[in-house]
Protein backbone atom coordinates (compact mmCIF):
# COMPACT_ATOMS: atom_id res chain seq x y z
CA UNK A 1 0.00 0.00 0.00
CA UNK A 2 1.30 3.40 -0.90
CA UNK A 3 -0.03 6.78 0.04
CA UNK A 4 -1.28 8.99 -2.76
CA UNK A 5 0.99 11.87 -3.42
CA UNK A 6 -1.30 14.82 -3.04
CA UNK A 7 1.03 16.92 -5.13
CA UNK A 8 0.92 14.55 -8.06
CA UNK A 9 -2.82 14.67 -8.10
CA UNK A 10 -4.19 17.73 -9.79
CA UNK A 11 -4.43 20.27 -7.01
CA UNK A 12 -7.94 20.90 -8.10
CA UNK A 13 -10.55 18.22 -8.28
CA UNK A 14 -12.17 17.81 -11.64
CA UNK A 15 -15.60 19.35 -11.79
CA UNK A 16 -18.50 18.91 -14.13
CA UNK A 17 -20.05 22.17 -15.18
CA UNK A 18 -23.76 22.76 -14.66
CA UNK A 19 -23.90 24.73 -17.86
CA UNK A 20 -24.31 28.04 -16.06
CA UNK A 21 -21.33 30.14 -14.96
CA UNK A 22 -23.17 31.56 -11.95
CA UNK A 23 -24.12 28.16 -10.58
CA UNK A 24 -20.62 26.84 -11.32
CA UNK A 25 -19.02 29.68 -9.40
CA UNK A 26 -21.48 29.12 -6.56
CA UNK A 27 -20.48 25.46 -6.31
CA UNK A 28 -16.77 26.12 -6.61
CA UNK A 29 -16.62 24.81 -10.17
CA UNK A 30 -19.57 22.48 -10.51
CA UNK A 31 -20.25 18.92 -9.42
CA UNK A 32 -17.02 17.36 -8.13
CA UNK A 33 -15.79 14.04 -9.49
CA UNK A 34 -14.80 11.32 -7.08
CA UNK A 35 -17.58 12.36 -4.73
CA UNK A 36 -21.31 11.96 -4.12
CA UNK A 37 -23.47 15.06 -4.40
CA UNK A 38 -27.06 14.90 -3.28
CA UNK A 39 -29.81 17.22 -4.47
CA UNK A 40 -32.67 17.45 -2.00
CA UNK A 41 -35.98 19.12 -2.68
CA UNK A 42 -39.72 18.68 -2.76
CA UNK A 43 -41.21 17.68 -6.06
CA UNK A 44 -41.32 20.40 -8.66
CA UNK A 45 -38.33 22.32 -7.42
CA UNK A 46 -36.03 21.43 -10.24
CA UNK A 47 -33.91 18.52 -9.11
CA UNK A 48 -34.77 16.39 -12.11
CA UNK A 49 -34.23 19.44 -14.33
CA UNK A 50 -30.78 19.93 -12.95
CA UNK A 51 -30.03 16.22 -13.17
CA UNK A 52 -31.07 16.06 -16.83
CA UNK A 53 -29.06 19.14 -17.63
CA UNK A 54 -25.95 17.50 -16.19
CA UNK A 55 -26.36 14.56 -18.56
CA UNK A 56 -25.71 16.98 -21.40
CA UNK A 57 -23.06 19.19 -19.86
CA UNK A 58 -20.94 16.16 -18.94
CA UNK A 59 -20.37 15.69 -22.68
CA UNK A 60 -18.82 19.10 -23.09
CA UNK A 61 -15.10 19.07 -23.76
CA UNK A 62 -12.68 19.75 -20.93
CA UNK A 63 -11.94 23.31 -21.96
CA UNK A 64 -15.63 24.10 -21.48
CA UNK A 65 -15.42 22.51 -18.00
CA UNK A 66 -17.29 19.42 -19.04
CA UNK A 67 -16.04 15.87 -18.53
CA UNK A 68 -15.92 14.97 -22.19
CA UNK A 69 -17.60 11.69 -21.40
CA UNK A 70 -20.87 9.80 -21.38
CA UNK A 71 -23.29 9.71 -18.54
CA UNK A 72 -25.60 7.16 -16.99
CA UNK A 73 -29.08 8.04 -15.81
CA UNK A 74 -30.68 5.60 -13.39
CA UNK A 75 -34.29 6.51 -12.69
CA UNK A 76 -36.73 5.13 -10.22
CA UNK A 77 -39.50 7.68 -10.57
CA UNK A 78 -41.57 6.79 -13.59
CA UNK A 79 -41.97 7.59 -16.35
CA UNK A 80 -38.76 8.83 -17.88
CA UNK A 81 -39.20 12.60 -18.47
CA UNK A 82 -39.06 12.30 -22.24
CA UNK A 83 -40.65 15.60 -23.14
CA UNK A 84 -38.38 17.67 -20.98
CA UNK A 85 -35.40 15.66 -22.13
CA UNK A 86 -36.14 16.48 -25.76
CA UNK A 87 -36.57 20.17 -24.93
CA UNK A 88 -33.24 20.30 -23.20
CA UNK A 89 -31.65 18.40 -26.04
CA UNK A 90 -32.79 21.05 -28.52
CA UNK A 91 -31.59 23.95 -26.48
CA UNK A 92 -28.30 22.22 -25.80
CA UNK A 93 -27.77 21.67 -29.51
CA UNK A 94 -28.60 25.26 -30.21
CA UNK A 95 -26.12 26.56 -27.67
CA UNK A 96 -23.31 24.36 -28.93
CA UNK A 97 -23.95 24.12 -32.68
CA UNK A 98 -20.38 23.34 -33.67
CA UNK A 99 -19.79 20.64 -31.12
CA UNK A 100 -22.98 18.83 -31.84
CA UNK A 101 -23.36 18.90 -35.55
CA UNK A 102 -25.92 16.54 -36.95
CA UNK A 103 -23.42 13.71 -37.14
CA UNK A 104 -22.99 13.61 -33.41
CA UNK A 105 -26.11 13.11 -31.39
CA UNK A 106 -25.78 13.90 -27.66
CA UNK A 107 -28.30 11.15 -27.01
CA UNK A 108 -25.73 8.58 -28.06
CA UNK A 109 -23.74 9.49 -25.00
CA UNK A 110 -26.51 9.22 -22.47
CA UNK A 111 -27.36 5.82 -21.10
CA UNK A 112 -30.51 5.23 -19.13
CA UNK A 113 -31.75 2.38 -17.02
CA UNK A 114 -34.76 2.06 -14.76
CA UNK A 115 -34.45 0.68 -11.26
CA UNK A 116 -37.42 -0.70 -9.41
CA UNK A 117 -35.93 -1.50 -6.04
CA UNK A 118 -32.84 -0.77 -4.02
CA UNK A 119 -31.55 -4.28 -4.69
CA UNK A 120 -32.09 -3.69 -8.37
CA UNK A 121 -29.93 -0.60 -8.16
CA UNK A 122 -27.29 -2.49 -6.28
CA UNK A 123 -27.18 -5.19 -8.96
CA UNK A 124 -26.88 -2.59 -11.71
CA UNK A 125 -23.98 -0.99 -9.90
CA UNK A 126 -22.28 -4.35 -9.45
CA UNK A 127 -22.61 -5.18 -13.13
CA UNK A 128 -21.40 -1.77 -14.08
CA UNK A 129 -17.97 -2.37 -12.63
CA UNK A 130 -16.80 -4.90 -15.20
CA UNK A 131 -18.07 -2.68 -18.00
CA UNK A 132 -16.43 0.45 -16.68
CA UNK A 133 -13.14 -1.40 -16.63
CA UNK A 134 -13.29 -1.77 -20.40
CA UNK A 135 -14.69 1.55 -21.60
CA UNK A 136 -13.45 1.03 -25.15
CA UNK A 137 -15.18 -2.28 -25.75
CA UNK A 138 -18.40 -1.44 -24.04
CA UNK A 139 -18.52 2.18 -25.20
CA UNK A 140 -19.34 3.01 -21.60
CA UNK A 141 -16.91 5.84 -21.03
CA UNK A 142 -18.97 7.11 -18.15
CA UNK A 143 -17.87 9.98 -15.96
CA UNK A 144 -21.24 10.91 -14.51
CA UNK A 145 -23.85 8.76 -12.82
CA UNK A 146 -27.20 10.29 -11.91
CA UNK A 147 -29.65 8.44 -9.70
CA UNK A 148 -33.10 10.00 -9.71
CA UNK A 149 -34.28 9.43 -7.07
CA UNK A 150 -32.73 7.45 -4.28
CA UNK A 151 -35.68 7.99 -1.95
CA UNK A 152 -38.22 6.32 -4.24
CA UNK A 153 -36.23 3.09 -4.08
CA UNK A 154 -36.52 2.86 -0.35
CA UNK A 155 -39.99 4.19 0.14
CA UNK A 156 -42.02 1.05 -0.45
CA UNK A 157 -39.92 -1.93 0.43
CA UNK A 158 -39.18 -1.35 4.06
CA UNK A 159 -41.47 -1.29 7.07
CA UNK A 160 -41.07 1.07 9.95
CA UNK A 161 -39.82 -1.48 12.45
CA UNK A 162 -36.36 -1.84 13.97
CA UNK A 163 -35.43 -4.90 11.93
CA UNK A 164 -36.32 -3.38 8.59
CA UNK A 165 -34.76 -0.06 9.49
CA UNK A 166 -31.52 -1.80 10.30
CA UNK A 167 -31.64 -3.74 7.05
CA UNK A 168 -32.37 -0.50 5.23
CA UNK A 169 -29.48 1.41 6.72
CA UNK A 170 -27.10 -1.46 6.00
CA UNK A 171 -28.22 -1.26 2.37
CA UNK A 172 -27.62 2.52 2.37
CA UNK A 173 -24.02 1.99 3.29
CA UNK A 174 -23.62 -0.83 0.79
CA UNK A 175 -24.91 1.30 -2.07
CA UNK A 176 -22.95 4.33 -0.97
CA UNK A 177 -19.80 2.26 -0.66
CA UNK A 178 -20.04 0.79 -4.15
CA UNK A 179 -20.83 4.21 -5.60
CA UNK A 180 -17.84 5.74 -3.87
CA UNK A 181 -15.59 2.93 -4.97
CA UNK A 182 -16.66 3.42 -8.62
CA UNK A 183 -16.26 7.17 -8.21
CA UNK A 184 -12.76 6.68 -6.90
CA UNK A 185 -11.61 4.07 -9.41
CA UNK A 186 -12.97 5.68 -12.52
CA UNK A 187 -13.06 9.34 -11.48
CA UNK A 188 -16.84 9.54 -11.73
CA UNK A 189 -19.06 12.35 -10.49
CA UNK A 190 -22.14 11.00 -8.76
CA UNK A 191 -25.36 12.93 -8.38
CA UNK A 192 -28.32 11.62 -6.40
CA UNK A 193 -31.67 13.21 -5.90
CA UNK A 194 -33.62 12.81 -2.72
CA UNK A 195 -37.11 13.74 -1.66
CA UNK A 196 -38.18 15.54 1.45
CA UNK A 197 -40.59 14.68 4.21
CA UNK A 198 -42.46 17.14 6.36
CA UNK A 199 -40.73 17.77 9.61
CA UNK A 200 -43.01 17.23 12.58
CA UNK A 201 -40.54 17.84 15.35
CA UNK A 202 -41.05 20.60 17.81
CA UNK A 203 -38.50 23.33 18.21
CA UNK A 204 -36.89 22.00 21.35
CA UNK A 205 -34.57 19.10 21.61
CA UNK A 206 -34.05 18.72 17.90
CA UNK A 207 -30.90 20.77 17.52
CA UNK A 208 -28.94 17.60 18.24
CA UNK A 209 -30.20 15.96 15.06
CA UNK A 210 -29.71 19.05 13.00
CA UNK A 211 -27.76 18.08 9.91
CA UNK A 212 -25.77 20.74 8.16
CA UNK A 213 -25.70 24.48 8.07
CA UNK A 214 -29.38 25.21 8.05
CA UNK A 215 -31.34 24.80 11.21
CA UNK A 216 -34.49 24.16 9.22
CA UNK A 217 -35.14 23.60 5.59
CA UNK A 218 -38.12 25.60 4.36
CA UNK A 219 -39.79 25.15 1.03
CA UNK A 220 -43.20 26.44 -0.04
CA UNK A 221 -43.69 27.61 3.51
CA UNK A 222 -43.37 24.13 4.92
CA UNK A 223 -40.65 22.88 7.17
CA UNK A 224 -39.12 19.78 5.72
CA UNK A 225 -36.22 17.45 6.19
CA UNK A 226 -34.53 15.16 3.66
CA UNK A 227 -35.97 11.67 3.37
CA UNK A 228 -34.13 8.53 4.52
CA UNK A 229 -32.94 10.00 7.80
CA UNK A 230 -29.66 10.38 9.58
CA UNK A 231 -27.86 7.25 8.46
CA UNK A 232 -28.31 8.14 4.81
CA UNK A 233 -26.93 11.62 5.51
CA UNK A 234 -23.68 9.87 6.43
CA UNK A 235 -23.54 8.27 3.00
CA UNK A 236 -23.20 11.37 0.84
CA UNK A 237 -20.29 13.80 0.63
CA UNK A 238 -22.21 16.96 -0.19
CA UNK A 239 -25.84 17.85 0.17
CA UNK A 240 -27.54 20.65 -1.72
CA UNK A 241 -31.06 21.79 -0.97
CA UNK A 242 -33.36 23.34 -3.56
CA UNK A 243 -36.17 25.42 -2.15
CA UNK A 244 -38.92 27.55 -3.57
CA UNK A 245 -41.25 30.09 -2.18
CA UNK A 246 -43.52 32.76 -3.48
CA UNK A 247 -42.70 36.43 -3.26
CA UNK A 248 -44.83 39.34 -4.18
CA UNK A 249 -43.06 42.16 -5.84
CA UNK A 250 -43.89 45.21 -7.86
CA UNK A 251 -46.37 46.27 -5.19
CA UNK A 252 -45.39 49.14 -2.95
CA UNK A 253 -48.75 49.90 -1.46
CA UNK A 254 -49.36 47.62 1.49
CA UNK A 255 -52.91 48.77 1.99
CA UNK A 256 -54.24 46.67 -0.83
CA UNK A 257 -57.43 44.89 -0.04
CA UNK A 258 -57.53 41.16 -0.12
CA UNK A 259 -59.92 41.40 -3.01
CA UNK A 260 -57.29 43.07 -5.15
CA UNK A 261 -54.76 40.37 -4.66
CA UNK A 262 -55.33 39.35 -8.24
CA UNK A 263 -53.23 42.33 -9.27
CA UNK A 264 -50.34 41.44 -7.07
CA UNK A 265 -47.45 40.15 -9.07
CA UNK A 266 -46.63 36.81 -7.54
CA UNK A 267 -43.35 35.30 -8.47
CA UNK A 268 -41.76 31.99 -7.65
CA UNK A 269 -38.34 32.29 -6.06
CA UNK A 270 -36.06 29.32 -6.19
CA UNK A 271 -32.91 28.98 -4.14
CA UNK A 272 -30.07 26.54 -3.98
CA UNK A 273 -28.45 26.05 -0.57
CA UNK A 274 -25.31 24.23 0.49
CA UNK A 275 -26.47 22.10 3.42
CA UNK A 276 -23.06 20.55 3.86
CA UNK A 277 -20.04 19.92 1.69
CA UNK A 278 -16.40 19.25 2.51
CA UNK A 279 -15.21 22.03 0.23
CA UNK A 280 -17.93 24.68 0.47
CA UNK A 281 -19.16 26.94 3.23
CA UNK A 282 -22.84 27.64 3.71
CA UNK A 283 -24.24 29.89 1.02
CA UNK A 284 -27.30 30.18 -1.13
CA UNK A 285 -27.99 31.24 -4.67
CA UNK A 286 -31.16 32.10 -6.52
CA UNK A 287 -31.91 30.21 -9.69
CA UNK A 288 -34.56 30.10 -12.37
CA UNK A 289 -35.86 27.33 -14.58
CA UNK A 290 -36.50 28.31 -18.15
CA UNK A 291 -37.16 26.41 -21.30
CA UNK A 292 -33.41 26.32 -21.89
CA UNK A 293 -32.71 24.78 -18.53
CA UNK A 294 -31.63 25.74 -15.03
CA UNK A 295 -29.52 28.85 -14.55
CA UNK A 296 -28.37 30.97 -11.66
CA UNK A 297 -29.33 34.57 -10.95
CA UNK A 298 -26.50 36.96 -10.19
CA UNK A 299 -26.81 38.65 -6.82
Amino acid sequence: MRPDNLLLRPTHTQYCTLGCPILDAFLGGGIPCNSITELVSESGCGKTQLALQLLFTAQLPLHLNGLSASSLYLYSEFPFPNRRFTQLLESFRLSHPILFASSRDPRDYIFTRDCQTAHDLFDVLLQLESRLEKPKETRLDIKLIVIDSIAALFRSEFENNPRDLKRRSSLFFKISSILKSHARRFGIAIVLTNQVVDSMEDNEGSSGIRVGNLEWLYTSGRRVCPALGLSWANCVNSRLFLSRYEVTDGVENDSLDAGYSGFVNRRKMRELHVVFAPHLPYSSCEFVITREGVSGVAK
Binding site: P3, L6, T13, A183, H279
Partner: peptide, 16 residues
Protein backbone atom coordinates in the same frame (compact mmCIF):
# COMPACT_ATOMS: atom_id res chain seq x y z
CA UNK B 1 0.36 13.31 8.91
CA UNK B 2 -1.24 10.09 7.73
CA UNK B 3 -4.75 10.72 6.47
CA UNK B 4 -6.91 7.65 5.91
CA UNK B 5 -10.00 8.58 3.94
CA UNK B 6 -12.78 6.02 3.90
CA UNK B 7 -15.58 8.30 2.74
CA UNK B 8 -13.97 10.29 -0.04
CA UNK B 9 -14.63 13.62 1.63
CA UNK B 10 -11.03 14.85 1.62
CA UNK B 11 -10.84 17.68 -0.89
CA UNK B 12 -7.44 18.94 -1.97
CA UNK B 13 -8.78 22.46 -2.52
CA UNK B 14 -9.92 22.64 1.06
CA UNK B 15 -6.62 21.31 2.38
CA UNK B 16 -4.82 23.98 0.35
Amino acid sequence: AVYIDTEGSFMVERAL
